[in-house]
Structure formats: structure tokens, C-alpha cells
Design a protein around this nucleic acid. Structure first.
Lengths: 186, 186
DNA sequence: CGTAAGAGCTAATCTCATTAGCTAGGTCGC
DNA sequence: GCGACCTAGCTAATGAGATTAGCTCTTACG
């Protein structure tokens, strides 16, 4: 019986892809194993169970999200940086709903947790936007939480199919960017 | 064997209480049955399975949340109405994290769904706040989504223990109320 | 070449949700 | 009061899913 040659990373990306395709809630160990061509107990040679797998998907998602927003913000400043961040954020969530859902309930275990580092990096991008609006250091934590909440809320509601009525979500999102811009100006 | 005399409402409130106590994700049919003094298969005489139960918890939560915010907003207007709504919203989420979590992924099945009606009623409260800021009818949908996203994001992150660093969430929330106020003014 | 680590497998266990089919408590018509 | 029926509740069984135990065989390395 030839070895499949699977790595922990393979497991995580396969699981993340499945979550994006059929929904995070429908992700099972068997489906991941099937996609990799192995049996589900063999997954435990690479990851430490479903909870660990979910945690790793969240870490992957936050890392990718941080890179995507960072790339989008390159060469921008002020309100343009806000808009660039926002659109890149939403674009990622729309194309990777399963990955993003994994991040919603994820908690980090300590400062050594890769998820912690990835989150810190993403928050750095937001902090850069906020400094562009002249937010002072002692307000920074509050502002960070506020902005994070705002975009997370929109993303979570959309990922959960929460906008079930009339207007176009794209337009609403642009409206929200202007709203945030107004809220950050003094 | 004396009958327990359980009603569908009993099942839903018992389940909602358990979710608040031990976390929505840990809610099981057995736990609900135990609390009611019956066996888990008997629950199916009252509700249509776990998915139905979760949907009913979400409906209960949105209904209660709508009433709580409505009560809090009585006799207020303008920015005071916003603050009253916001604080009542957060207060409910903090005291009923399990109930609130149930609402996150809930989708309604159609216009006849009680969840739909409860949601519409909650959105009415937000719309009242927005009219107080002079938001026009053609912007209302976007503004509704934005405000809903903002508060939902904060609530969801806090319910998921997402604020794991320094500053006091209460202060951050007050900061967010001011932020929203600025964003809604022209 | 021989050996040890470990990737993968099968079999088994445990927890849940759910279904099938039985039983008996309470209620309604007489 | 009394019988029949409705249905809440029960036990037993099924099936999905995660997880553990223990075996085997591939392969990298000396």
C-alpha cells in the first residue's frame, strides 16, 4: 500500500477548501480524509482532532486575510487605506466563507499560539488605518475593537446569509465604508 | 408513571437557559431532556429535532431582544435613543450569550416564519433610531445593515471571547456608541 | 542491508440525534 | 361513573461522527 505522503498543511488546506465549498458546519473528518485519499483515523497522525483542525483553519484564514489586506493597502493612506482594507477584507470573506467562519469562535491559547500572532498582524493593519485618522494611542484599543467589530459584523452576517432582503450588499458595504470614514474623522 | 406535562415552550426555554449557562455549542438533546425530567426521544413530541429547537431559540432570543431594546428606548430620541438601544442590546447579549449565539446562523424560512417577524420588529427599533438622525428612506436599508453589523460584530466577538487583550470592553462599547453617533451625523 | 520511526490501516468504542413501536395517563362523550 | 381514544412519554435500535488501540508496512538513514 503506497503512502499518500500527506502533511499537516495538506490536511488543513483540504479541510479549509471543503469548508469553503460546503459550509464550515458540514465539515467532517471523513470528508477531509476522503479528499486526501486516506481513512479518517489516519488524520490523527497529523492533527490533534477536530478541535485542533478547526483552530488551524482559523489560523490559516487570519493569516491569509492579514496578507490580503496588507497587500491591498500598499501605497495607500488615509481614507483610501480604509477603503482598500475594507474591500480586501470583504473580498476574502466572500470568496472564503468557510475559512472565515472558522475564525468566528476561535480563541487563542496563549501568546505563543500562531493564531495570536496572525491576529496581531491583522490588527496591525487596522491600527495603521486608524493612525492615518489621527487616533491617539490611548484610544487605539477602543477604536481597534470598534472597527474590527464593524467589519466582522458585516462579514459574519453575510457569511450566515443574514441579509435576506432587498438592497444590494455591495452598495451597503460601500455605504458602511463612508459611515466608518465619518465616524473616524473629528 | 406521572406525566411531566411539558410544552413546546418549556422545551425551548429550558434549552435556551442551558445554552446561556454552558454555551450554545454544548447544548444537547439529552441535557434538555434531563432538565425537563424526561428522556430525549420524548422531546420529539414537542419539537421537530435539534435544528428546529435551535431555530426556536433564535426566535425567542430575537423576540426578547426586540422587547428589551424597545423598552429601553421608550421616551428617548436622537442620540439618547441610540445609546439606549445600544446599551440594552449589549446588556441582553452579555446576560444571554447562549440565546444570542443561536441567532447568529439562523435563517428564516419565509415571511410566515416567526423569526422573520421578530427580526422585522427588532429592525424597526433600529430604523426609529436612524430616522432620528435624518436618514432618508432610500438609504435606510444600507444604514440598517451597517448599524446591525456594527452591534452584531461587537456582540459576536464578545460572546466568542474575542476581546482577549487589555482594555475594558465596557469603555470600548461606549467609545463605539460615540463612533456610531459621529458616523450618523452629516 | 538492517532497523527504527511513523504513516496508514482495521476494529472497536462512545456520544449524539433520530426513528419505530409500545404503554399508559388523562380526557371526553355517554 | 365508564369506556375509548389521543398522545406524552418510554425503551430499544439505528446510524453518523469522533476518537482510541494496536497492527503493518514503507522508507529514510546508518
Amino acid at each position: 500500500m503506497p503512502r499518500a505522503g500527506v502533511t499537516a498543511e495538506d490536511v488543513v488546506t483540504a479541510a479549509a477548501d471543503i469548508a469553503d465549498e460546503i459550509g464550515y458546519d458540514n465539515l467532517t473528518m471523513s470528508l477531509v480524509a476522503d479528499r486526501l485519499g486516506i481513512r479518517s483515523p489516519s488524520l490523527y497522525k497529523h492533527i490533534d482532532g477536530l478541535a485542533d483542525l478547526q483552530h488551524r483553519i482559523a489560523t490559516l484564514a487570519i493569516t491569509e486575510l492579514g496578507e490580503a489586506t496588507r497587500d491591498a493597502m500598499l501605497g495607500t493612506a488615509g481614507p483610501d487605506a480604509l477603503a482598500a482594507f475594507a474591500r480586501a477584507f470583504r473580498s476574502y470573506v466572500v470568496t472564503h466563507p468557510g475559512r472565515y467562519t472558522a475564525t468566528i469562535g476561535a480563541e487563542f491559547t496563549g501568546p505563543e499560539d500562531p493564531l495570536f500572532k496572525a491576529s496581531a498582524r491583522l490588527l496591525d493593519s487596522i491600527a495603521a488605518v486608524l493612525r492615518g485618522y489621527g487616533i491617539s494611542a490611548d484610544e487605539m484599543d477602543h477604536a481597534l475593537r470598534t472597527i474590527r467589530s464593524t467589519f466582522h459584523g458585516f462579514a459574519a452576517l453575510q457569511a450566515a446569509n443574514g441579509f435576506q432582503w432587498s438592497a444590494d450588499p455591495d452598495e451597503s458595504f460601500e455605504w458602511m465604508i463612508h459611515f466608518v470614514d465619518r465616524g473616524l474623522r473629528r
